[in-house]
Design a protein around this nucleic acid. Structure first.
Lengths: 291, 291
DNA sequence: CACTGTGAACTCATTCACAGCC
DNA sequence: GGCTGTGAATGAGTTCACAGTG
């Protein structure tokens, strides 16, 4: 084991969490050439750029990809940036900029060919290669994830499930038998899992994470409400339901304050936040929005 | 655009909103370029709300809150920015800046009193008031959400569940009987739901969303992989599993490219080969065992 | 003409570094 | 001495606006 258990902690730790963020690490050692066929694809110049795509743009590319797939399915073969942008919920300038990061695949005066764009985005996102997924923690959420059709259909076959509960071990969930968490390292290694999903309760999460990493997993999607400590080469993304709710809560509060302020000036308005007493808030209060 | 199907609304691009792929700005409709230049629509960046806490900071405040709660539980009464920052996975400068947005509640030379900070963050996030939650779509994910302990325990009581399936209607899930989606408007109104969670399949999502909005819901957490169209006053946050996976995939690909490039330029083989690289990269060796 | 692709301007977010206080 | 709070500097991400092209 490396220095101090091999975790990155005290350092200028990185694990931001903006509207959409992640652990951004540079030092990408590791990875070999053996199974890397994605890199073998042509398009010389684009390789250079991959590094330069802003994080925020990557997230949106994934959205464009889905939007494009939908368009393709309904027979569309060409889209303008305006159309695609609207469908994807962004403005067209941003979309064009995002697409420009992956190259120039549009036709001026016409638009983009759906097929082509799909291919290029897939390549950029590394979807030309399958990424095996392991889900740890087969509770309610784990079940949901194991059965989630969106994963396999998008190139992320779920190939391992883990839980602590002996009663669950061996039981197939979504077609795959649950393994014991003690076997994480071995199973992940042999099944070549690249992405680990942690859906365990808070306490088990760090332990499970360590094992996933030991099993060679370099990307983790974490649903447990903890900040995971991982070595530098491992990428963690967090989905935190409580945080999402609290952000929404903040916006409700903000809106109420605004309404209250506006009401003051206006003379009529709702009593607004009223410094929020615990307990039941009056009925009228909430619905007063302009609807 | 022939599109404009009734709803959408949300013009006026300028709005203190999240920079994220959130609420649609949908400023399409060609009106764009026309008055662009001299129009001087100005939109005098007024919005004189001193309230402005950066969106990104809000998300982190929620994380600090949880971290603080954990500290409180284990008996800690005081923390320094450094300690709290480490525990929350950010750097201390950022943490102090974030906290400064909500006021000055620390003591120089000492740190922050846990209790006080918890209270202030809760107030800021609007958690002094309970926010009733409705979950629509009681499939695997919906079940998981309905049973998720993290919601009620953090001031978000789940008070309504909806599904289309008649066999499910009336059945209690997590203690609450499922209602039919046709009753969304009524049930949400009477139970004063503020936050709606959409866990339906893609196709039902927009319809459900519309009804939630009609029922007075102003905040939506959307798990369906669609961009929802909502009126301006409604806040949407999206949790998109496929997108998360694809972002991770991108980072795998990037790392592989870097490794390949580094190997090329360096001549010395990539770390995978165990080429005598300094010990600093110890942790990277782990991944070798799988690759 | 219609639409892409992109430098340049701008806005938002993070980090630095230090003054001020305990 | 140690630590907070914050303006100022830097950096990331977004929007503008227009040149350039099929």
């Amino acid at each position: 084991m490396p220095e101090g258990d091999g975790r990155t902690t005290a350092r200028t730790a990185a694990s931001p969490r903006t509207p959409d963020a992640n652990t951004t690490d540079a030092s990408g050692t590791g990875a070999n050439g053996t199974d890397a066929n994605g890199a073998a694809i042509a398009v010389p110049a684009a390789r250079e750029r991959a590094r330069a795509i802003p994080e925020a743009a990557v997230a949106r590319l994934a959205v464009y990809l889905r939007t494009l797939s939908a368009l393709a399915e309904q027979g569309t073969t060409t889209v303008s940036s305006e159309e695609l942008a609207t469908a994807a919920g962004v403005n067209s300038a941003k979309l064009r900029k995002d697409l420009s990061y992956i190259g120039s695949y549009g036709t001026r005066g016409v638009g983009y060919e759906v097929e082509v764009l799909v291919g290029q985005i897939e390549r950029t996102l590394g979807l030309t290669r399958k990424h095996s997924v392991a889900v740890a923690g087969i509770g309610n959420l784990g079940h949901a994830l194991a059965n989630y059709g969106g994963f396999p259909s998008r190139g992320f076959p779920v190939s391992a499930l883990f839980d602590l509960d002996d009663d669950l071990v061996g039981v197939p969930v979504g077609g795959i038998p649950v393994s014991h968490v003690d076997d994480i390292v071995e199973v992940c290694s042999t099944r070549e899992v690249t992405i680990g999903v942690i859906a365990t309760p808070t306490k088990g999460a760090q332990e499970v994470c360590d094992r996933l990493v030991a099993g060679g997993v370099t990307c983790i999607l974490n649903f447990a409400p903890v900040v995971l400590q991982v070595p530098e080469h491992v990428e963690v993304r967090k989905v935190d339901l409580a945080v999402e709710m609290q952000i929404l809560s903040f916006h409700v509060a903000r809106r109420q304050q605004e309404a209250a302020a506006a009401g003051e000036a206006d003379g009529a308005g709702p009593p607004g936040g009223g410094a929020g007493l615990p307990g039941e808030i009056d009925s009228a209060n909430r619905m007063v929005e302009r609807l």
